[in-house]
Design a protein around this nucleic acid. Structure first.
Lengths: 96, 96
DNA sequence: TTAGTATATTACTATATAGTAATATAATGT
DNA sequence: ACATTATATTACTATATAGTAATATACTAA
Protein backbone atom coordinates (compact mmCIF):
# COMPACT_ATOMS: atom_id res chain seq x y z
CA UNK A 1 0.00 0.00 0.00
CA UNK A 2 1.50 3.30 -1.04
CA UNK A 3 1.74 6.33 1.23
CA UNK A 4 -0.93 8.37 -0.50
CA UNK A 5 -3.47 5.58 -0.30
CA UNK A 6 -2.56 4.84 3.31
CA UNK A 7 -3.05 8.48 4.28
CA UNK A 8 -6.31 8.71 2.46
CA UNK A 9 -7.86 5.49 3.72
CA UNK A 10 -6.66 6.19 7.26
CA UNK A 11 -8.42 9.55 7.07
CA UNK A 12 -11.68 7.94 6.09
CA UNK A 13 -11.41 5.28 8.76
CA UNK A 14 -10.66 8.00 11.27
CA UNK A 15 -13.86 9.76 10.29
CA UNK A 16 -15.71 6.61 11.30
CA UNK A 17 -13.56 5.70 14.28
CA UNK A 18 -15.67 7.36 16.93
CA UNK A 19 -18.77 5.90 18.52
CA UNK A 20 -21.01 8.84 17.69
CA UNK A 21 -19.72 9.26 14.16
CA UNK A 22 -20.15 5.55 13.58
CA UNK A 23 -23.74 5.80 14.75
CA UNK A 24 -24.28 8.75 12.45
CA UNK A 25 -22.96 6.82 9.48
CA UNK A 26 -25.05 3.87 10.56
CA UNK A 27 -28.29 5.80 10.62
CA UNK A 28 -27.56 7.58 7.35
CA UNK A 29 -27.14 4.30 5.57
CA UNK A 30 -30.90 4.11 5.22
CA UNK A 31 -31.01 7.54 3.60
CA UNK A 32 -30.48 11.20 4.29
CA UNK A 33 -31.56 12.75 7.58
CA UNK A 34 -31.72 16.32 8.81
CA UNK A 35 -29.44 17.50 11.59
CA UNK A 36 -32.20 17.54 14.16
CA UNK A 37 -33.06 13.91 13.56
CA UNK A 38 -29.42 12.99 13.81
CA UNK A 39 -28.92 14.91 17.03
CA UNK A 40 -31.88 13.14 18.61
CA UNK A 41 -30.89 9.75 17.34
CA UNK A 42 -27.36 9.87 18.69
CA UNK A 43 -28.47 11.58 21.87
CA UNK A 44 -25.69 14.13 21.85
CA UNK A 45 -25.55 17.88 22.01
CA UNK A 46 -26.36 19.91 18.94
CA UNK A 47 -23.02 21.68 18.69
CA UNK A 48 -20.98 18.51 19.03
CA UNK A 49 -23.08 16.70 16.47
CA UNK A 50 -22.75 19.62 14.10
CA UNK A 51 -18.99 19.55 14.49
CA UNK A 52 -18.86 15.85 13.85
CA UNK A 53 -21.03 16.15 10.77
CA UNK A 54 -18.74 18.85 9.50
CA UNK A 55 -15.68 16.74 10.13
CA UNK A 56 -17.19 13.81 8.26
CA UNK A 57 -18.05 16.09 5.39
CA UNK A 58 -14.48 17.37 5.30
CA UNK A 59 -13.23 13.82 4.97
CA UNK A 60 -15.57 13.19 2.08
CA UNK A 61 -17.66 10.69 4.00
CA UNK A 62 -20.81 12.81 4.04
CA UNK A 63 -22.33 15.57 1.99
CA UNK A 64 -25.31 17.75 2.68
CA UNK A 65 -27.94 19.92 1.10
CA UNK A 66 -30.08 22.64 2.60
CA UNK A 67 -33.83 22.54 2.19
CA UNK A 68 -35.40 25.55 3.75
CA UNK A 69 -34.45 25.74 7.38
CA UNK A 70 -33.18 22.19 7.47
CA UNK A 71 -29.92 20.68 6.33
CA UNK A 72 -29.97 17.10 5.19
CA UNK A 73 -26.86 14.97 5.44
CA UNK A 74 -26.23 11.82 3.50
CA UNK A 75 -23.40 9.40 2.92
CA UNK A 76 -21.41 10.73 0.03
CA UNK A 77 -18.90 7.97 -0.36
CA UNK A 78 -20.54 4.68 -1.34
CA UNK A 79 -17.51 2.77 -0.16
CA UNK A 80 -18.33 3.82 3.35
CA UNK A 81 -21.60 1.95 3.00
CA UNK A 82 -19.68 -1.10 1.90
CA UNK A 83 -17.38 -0.77 4.89
CA UNK A 84 -20.37 -0.46 7.19
CA UNK A 85 -21.98 -3.50 5.63
CA UNK A 86 -18.77 -5.33 6.25
CA UNK A 87 -18.98 -4.29 9.88
CA UNK A 88 -22.58 -5.42 10.13
CA UNK A 89 -21.92 -8.76 8.53
CA UNK A 90 -18.96 -9.58 10.67
CA UNK A 91 -19.03 -7.63 13.86
CA UNK A 92 -22.41 -8.15 15.35
CA UNK A 93 -21.03 -10.11 18.24
CA UNK A 94 -18.30 -7.61 19.03
CA UNK A 95 -16.02 -9.74 16.97
CA UNK A 96 -14.32 -6.79 15.41
CA UNK B 1 -26.40 0.20 16.51
CA UNK B 2 -26.20 -0.02 20.28
CA UNK B 3 -23.66 1.88 22.36
CA UNK B 4 -21.53 -1.11 23.25
CA UNK B 5 -21.16 -2.17 19.64
CA UNK B 6 -20.46 1.40 18.54
CA UNK B 7 -17.72 1.78 21.14
CA UNK B 8 -16.17 -1.52 20.24
CA UNK B 9 -16.23 -1.12 16.48
CA UNK B 10 -15.00 2.47 16.74
CA UNK B 11 -12.06 1.21 18.80
CA UNK B 12 -11.10 -1.29 16.14
CA UNK B 13 -11.46 1.25 13.35
CA UNK B 14 -9.33 3.63 15.36
CA UNK B 15 -6.61 1.01 15.58
CA UNK B 16 -6.51 1.01 11.78
CA UNK B 17 -7.10 4.73 11.29
CA UNK B 18 -3.48 5.76 11.04
CA UNK B 19 -1.33 5.52 7.93
CA UNK B 20 1.40 3.48 9.56
CA UNK B 21 -0.95 1.16 11.40
CA UNK B 22 -2.89 0.63 8.21
CA UNK B 23 0.29 -0.32 6.43
CA UNK B 24 1.16 -2.69 9.24
CA UNK B 25 -2.22 -4.40 8.98
CA UNK B 26 -1.81 -4.47 5.23
CA UNK B 27 1.52 -6.25 5.31
CA UNK B 28 0.41 -8.68 7.98
CA UNK B 29 -2.49 -9.79 5.86
CA UNK B 30 -0.14 -12.09 3.99
CA UNK B 31 1.01 -13.68 7.24
CA UNK B 32 2.94 -13.00 10.41
CA UNK B 33 6.09 -10.88 10.37
CA UNK B 34 8.70 -10.09 12.99
CA UNK B 35 9.03 -6.59 14.38
CA UNK B 36 12.20 -5.89 12.48
CA UNK B 37 10.59 -6.68 9.14
CA UNK B 38 7.67 -4.49 10.03
CA UNK B 39 9.87 -1.59 11.08
CA UNK B 40 11.75 -1.75 7.79
CA UNK B 41 8.63 -2.12 5.70
CA UNK B 42 6.87 0.89 7.16
CA UNK B 43 10.08 2.91 7.27
CA UNK B 44 9.49 4.23 10.77
CA UNK B 45 11.48 4.25 13.95
CA UNK B 46 11.68 1.15 16.03
CA UNK B 47 10.17 2.61 19.17
CA UNK B 48 7.21 4.15 17.39
CA UNK B 49 6.49 0.96 15.52
CA UNK B 50 6.71 -1.00 18.74
CA UNK B 51 4.22 1.32 20.36
CA UNK B 52 1.84 1.05 17.46
CA UNK B 53 2.07 -2.73 17.45
CA UNK B 54 1.32 -2.71 21.13
CA UNK B 55 -1.68 -0.44 20.65
CA UNK B 56 -3.06 -2.67 17.92
CA UNK B 57 -2.60 -5.67 20.17
CA UNK B 58 -4.46 -3.91 22.97
CA UNK B 59 -7.39 -3.34 20.64
CA UNK B 60 -7.44 -7.00 19.74
CA UNK B 61 -6.43 -6.37 16.16
CA UNK B 62 -3.06 -8.11 16.42
CA UNK B 63 -1.51 -10.80 18.54
CA UNK B 64 2.09 -11.93 18.80
CA UNK B 65 4.36 -14.76 19.76
CA UNK B 66 8.01 -14.77 20.66
CA UNK B 67 10.36 -17.10 18.89
CA UNK B 68 13.83 -16.76 20.28
CA UNK B 69 14.97 -13.20 19.99
CA UNK B 70 12.22 -12.30 17.60
CA UNK B 71 8.58 -11.45 18.16
CA UNK B 72 6.17 -12.26 15.39
CA UNK B 73 2.97 -10.28 15.00
CA UNK B 74 -0.08 -11.42 13.16
CA UNK B 75 -3.64 -10.28 12.60
CA UNK B 76 -5.68 -11.75 15.41
CA UNK B 77 -9.10 -10.59 14.35
CA UNK B 78 -10.18 -12.13 11.05
CA UNK B 79 -12.78 -9.42 10.59
CA UNK B 80 -9.96 -6.95 10.20
CA UNK B 81 -8.85 -8.90 7.16
CA UNK B 82 -12.37 -8.63 5.77
CA UNK B 83 -12.36 -4.90 6.39
CA UNK B 84 -9.02 -4.59 4.66
CA UNK B 85 -10.27 -6.60 1.72
CA UNK B 86 -13.20 -4.28 1.54
CA UNK B 87 -10.76 -1.38 1.43
CA UNK B 88 -8.73 -3.03 -1.31
CA UNK B 89 -11.73 -3.86 -3.41
CA UNK B 90 -13.20 -0.42 -3.25
CA UNK B 91 -10.59 2.13 -2.44
CA UNK B 92 -7.80 1.60 -4.88
CA UNK B 93 -8.48 4.88 -6.61
CA UNK B 94 -8.65 6.85 -3.40
CA UNK B 95 -12.37 6.46 -3.59
CA UNK B 96 -12.68 5.85 0.12
C1' DT C 1 30.26 -13.24 30.82
C1' DT C 2 30.43 -10.09 27.31
C1' DA C 3 28.98 -8.12 22.95
C1' DG C 4 25.52 -7.77 19.70
C1' DT C 5 20.84 -7.99 18.01
C1' DA C 6 15.84 -7.67 18.75
C1' DT C 7 12.15 -5.64 21.06
C1' DA C 8 9.81 -2.94 24.76
C1' DT C 9 9.29 0.82 27.87
C1' DT C 10 9.74 5.34 29.77
C1' DA C 11 9.68 10.30 30.16
C1' DC C 12 8.91 13.99 27.61
C1' DT C 13 7.11 17.54 24.13
C1' DA C 14 4.05 18.70 20.51
C1' DT C 15 -0.12 18.35 18.36
C1' DA C 16 -4.80 16.73 17.64
C1' DT C 17 -9.23 15.60 19.20
C1' DA C 18 -13.32 15.73 22.31
C1' DG C 19 -16.40 18.22 24.86
C1' DT C 20 -18.64 22.60 26.88
C1' DA C 21 -20.91 26.83 26.73
C1' DA C 22 -22.02 30.66 24.49
C1' DT C 23 -23.07 33.04 20.45
C1' DA C 24 -23.92 33.63 15.47
C1' DT C 25 -26.32 32.73 11.24
C1' DA C 26 -30.20 31.16 8.38
C1' DA C 27 -34.90 30.36 7.47
C1' DT C 28 -39.88 30.44 8.72
C1' DG C 29 -44.25 32.09 10.35
C1' DT C 30 -46.85 35.85 12.46
C1' DA D 1 -39.92 43.53 12.24
C1' DC D 2 -39.97 39.89 15.67
C1' DA D 3 -40.05 35.44 17.75
C1' DT D 4 -39.02 30.77 16.85
C1' DT D 5 -36.72 26.88 15.05
C1' DA D 6 -32.70 24.88 12.77
C1' DT D 7 -27.94 24.75 12.18
C1' DA D 8 -23.09 26.47 12.44
C1' DT D 9 -19.23 28.63 14.58
C1' DT D 10 -16.22 30.24 18.15
C1' DA D 11 -13.35 30.27 22.21
C1' DC D 12 -12.07 27.55 25.59
C1' DT D 13 -10.58 23.46 28.63
C1' DA D 14 -9.52 18.70 29.07
C1' DT D 15 -7.79 14.69 27.31
C1' DA D 16 -5.72 11.68 23.91
C1' DT D 17 -2.48 10.70 20.47
C1' DA D 18 1.93 11.14 17.86
C1' DG D 19 6.59 11.53 17.86
C1' DT D 20 11.46 11.79 19.99
C1' DA D 21 15.25 10.26 22.53
C1' DA D 22 17.03 7.57 25.79
C1' DT D 23 17.14 3.46 28.29
C1' DA D 24 15.74 -1.19 29.62
C1' DT D 25 14.87 -5.98 28.77
C1' DA D 26 15.26 -10.46 26.29
C1' DC D 27 17.72 -13.46 23.70
C1' DT D 28 21.85 -15.37 21.06
C1' DA D 29 26.44 -16.36 20.07
C1' DA D 30 31.23 -16.18 20.94
Amino acid sequence: MNDITAEHVAGVLKALAHPVRLKIADMLESGEKCVNEIVEAVGGKQSITSQQLNMMKDKGVLSCRREGARVYYRIENPNVIRLLNCVYNNCQKNEV
